[in-house]
Write a protein that binds this DNA or RNA. Sequence first.
DNA 1: ACATTGACCTGAGAGC
DNA 2: TGCTCTCAGGTCAATG
Length: 265
Amino acid sequence: MPELPDVEMIRRYVQATALHQPIRGVEVLAPTMLEGITPSRLGRRLKGQSIEAAERYGKYVFVGLSNGWWLVFHFGMTGDLRYFKDLSHHPSYEPFLIHFSSGSHLVYVSRRKLGMIALIEEPLAFVKWKRLGPDAWESEFTATHLRQWCEGKLRSLKSALLDQHFIAGIGNLYADEILFQAHLHPQAHVGQLRTGTLENVQKTIKRVMKIAIDRRADPAHMPRSWLLPVRGPGGHCPACRHTLSRATISGRTTYFCSTCQRKTT
DNA sequence: ACATTGACCTGAGAGC
DNA sequence: TGCTCTCAGGTCAATG
């Protein structure tokens, strides 16, 4: 679930639920998910503080604390943040919990321990350290950036879209959606696409991100013309009704319409 | 430079 | 019902 639109929902959720409450303590039930800090040290840094901000970059959420430190969350394939007034409806998988003095809780839930939790001093320095490309939804991601990055490269468009060093926030599902809407084959070579085509790709990325966020990142509520609602075995192209093709590209399962999506233009 | 593979984790669903 | 196998939205490192 957690690609850019989903992570944006998580950010807004934190902002709407968990701000300005003193932290009584934290609980780390999956210490291996902490990066660069021990559970006890993390507890000391957070105790008595409050959450004052929630930012996002790519697939990361940065939770700003009253002492200036930032908690960083990456959600892997299954992670989410949930806010509970009390823990009577105990979440099942909870690597990390923040307990507020009010009695409520902000809980990182995840079935698989593929995510990451860290404590950092400066989000932008973290982004630089991770060498993340521009956020797919922010204005820094321009057609010029796309063109410069693709120039002379042999790699496939699908792998480029998934590369967080190139552009941050797109995952496997939305990469397929973007390719579908741009009418481009996932194995199109980025270096062979014309300037006008690349500009269209950039516009498509922006449009897909915007609409996905407007519709709260819920695949069931995406437009009928989109791939997402039918993406899966036996799905049919919303445009031409052909059965969708399935292939492994860049190591990831890819669904596309072999009629509507072209390798060149 | 790029694609591919496996590792990291664990649940869900299919097939037997 | 229960077992085994395969797959899943992410990232990273090693290999060819």
